[in-house]
Design a protein around this nucleic acid. Structure first.
Lengths: 344, 344
DNA sequence: ATGAAAGCGCTAACAA
DNA sequence: TTGTTAGCGCTTTCAT
């Protein structure tokens, strides 16, 4: 008992004209309509009466566009859960959706896509464009991305990784880390550290670590690569470290990691921030839910998502994108997890 | 410089056959292929050589299906942000995506849809089915839902609200609240309260409040409607209440509300759970990030999302759904925000 | 001002 | 085993 939707043809019959005229009256906003007002009114009435809606897919098919964008999650995890870890991916998606809506595109998450055969998504006509969001794609993926039929924008990567041929959007990791280091220095901290997940494959990890080392030095702090704390997924290394913590402050690679750091430090009897100042990265909403609230480097995730879409849409519409790499500045959201070392 | 994708016709030409044969060889999994192995191989080679991918939209168009599901967010907010408040919506979406993938459908979030003209989504051919997620739709919306061309499943509502004609999925609010009340009673709490947002329009608020009153009575607790704390969005009422708190425990309508309750109670010098036990509702991931970790009634959001999709797909495929209303049981996740009143 | 024709890529039904 | 026909709903182009 499938109810048929009303088609252009139905409206045309009711109004006593051909579908072409109906199309012009109802959908040709820009062009001159070239239809007598009387007919136009008759058509509009008929459409109203029947409750006509254009069939979007038929139109898109005819126009050879889908007005749909896909979000690809290449490698790393099986599927990005929205509700897991920090709200990182959720924030990003909010930005992507926002940007897409602005340009009249929809955002689709679909199986083949987020799973393995990402090659399909680039060629099966499902999308006008793709956002590739991945920690760090293996070489063969990069080749695939470069050769994709469909325009792609890659998040959290550098254009150089793709032979300068794929637009990318990334935050200014160096400048972000510098904000954190300077903040700690201004609070009188000298022994500061950087915590990262050893097994996380991501260019950004190394960017942030290197930025930590470099900016600390610039700030005149006695920091070496020994001050980088490498952690395993299960946080065993963290327990080990906390038996004999050597620093008064730590900058963590992500908010999720910072949350763990705080929780486990508290288990070990440390008071945050009195005994240890902690800074996260991303400044997602859940920083406000942690106790103490987490000071965090704010990567503008919403804007990153939106920017990526802006760039992608330009590409889809055949415009050149300049510059190919969008680097967005970070800010520092100072909350309660950092305090002056002098107070203690 | 739009690169054309390879079409069936291109493969056919290269293999020296007609498109129909190619279609059969490459896509007719189920039916007998009825093609000689030699030709089939030739076709497969040609497809491989050219890097052919089926155009999914053309196929769907021809088949008069979209294999796409929409998520409608009727009223209340302008657009559900994934990263806002508790992770409620994110969890739900994870379940929805999971369920959709299982059945081979994609999930689309698109502008017209999540904005105002939800009527479009029901008739513009964009979706094979819709999930309606709304706090509590106004009457005219309900009429629209009932009359929709496209199959719909409504979340967090009762089938009776839609004349018994629309399938719904909802958690067992009564049983969930009962778990919380019994838990508190077993910890020796006598003066317990229920906190809700006065201005939130939602059937579930009232269900939970009523369940609180009824199950408390059953548990032999001296509870009246005066023990329901009504709050404004800005939480001014909460500050007022906390000047002179009358209860040793509170069950909150949502995790987000519980988080606020805890934070503001702490500002007022209360220690959680020593001075006040707090229970949330939803048990989203961020309960673990609160300090203390939040005891919460767990609504199986992932399963609610998945179930909704299962039901929706049945409807799409013309099956009858029985029962029309799926009520999923809650559980209680006991964390650190509740403790025995006797300890103090 | 209106209409006829054509076709987007694909596949079900029927024909040879 | 292979091919022909036809059409999903829409819009662009060209004719009337």
């Amino acid at each position: 008992m499938k109810i048929m939707a009303i088609r252009l043809r139905d409206v045309a019959e009711k109004a006593g004209v051909t579908p072409v005229v109906v199309s012009r009256v109802l959908h040709n906003k820009a062009n001159g309509i070239r239809v007598s007002e009387a007919t136009a009114q008759r058509i509009r009435d008929a459409a109203e009466d029947l409750g006509y809606r254009v069939n979007v897919w038929a139109r898109n098919f005819r126009n050879q566009r889908t007005m749909a964008l896909g979000v690809l999650h290449g490698t790393g995890f099986p599927r990005p859960m929205l509700d897991r870890g920090s709200r990182y991916f959720a924030s990003l998606m909010d930005g992507i959706i926002e940007g897409a809506f602005k340009h009249g595109y929809s955002v689709t998450m679909c199986p083949k896509l987020l799973g393995e055969d990402s090659n399909d998504a680039m060629n099966d006509g499902r999308f006008d464009g793709l956002i590739w969001y991945s920690t760090s794609p293996p070489p063969e993926m990069k080749e695939q991305i470069i050769r994709s039929v469909v325009p792609i924008v890659v998040l959290h990567a550098h254009t150089a990784e793709f032979g300068g041929r794929i637009p990318t959007v990334i935050c200014d990791n160096y400048q972000g880390i510098k904000l954190a280091v300077d903040h700690l220095a201004s609070l009188g901290h000298r022994k500061i550290s950087f915590a990262m997940e050893r097994e996380l494959l991501s260019n950004e990890v190394h960017e942030r670590r290197d930025a930590f080392l470099k900016t600390s030095e610039q700030a005149g702090l006695p920091v070496t690569s020994a001050d980088v704390i490498q952690l395993d997924w299960e946080r065993r290394d963290l327990h080990t470290y906390l038996l004999n913590p050597l620093h008064s402050a730590v900058i963590c690679f992500s908010d999720g990691l910072a949350a763990d750091f705080i929780a486990i430090a508290q288990e070990h009897g440390l008071t945050i921030p009195k005994d240890l100042s902690v800074i996260g990265f991303d400044s997602t909403a859940f920083c406000n839910e942690l106790r103490p609230e987490l000071t965090s480097i704010s990567q503008p995730l919403l804007r990153i998502g939106e920017t990526a879409i802006d760039v992608l849409v330009k590409r889809i519409e055949g415009e050149m994108v300049e510059p190919m790499e969008s680097v967005l500045p970070c800010t520092l959201d100072i909350r309660r997890s950092t305090e002056s070392v002098l107070q203690s």
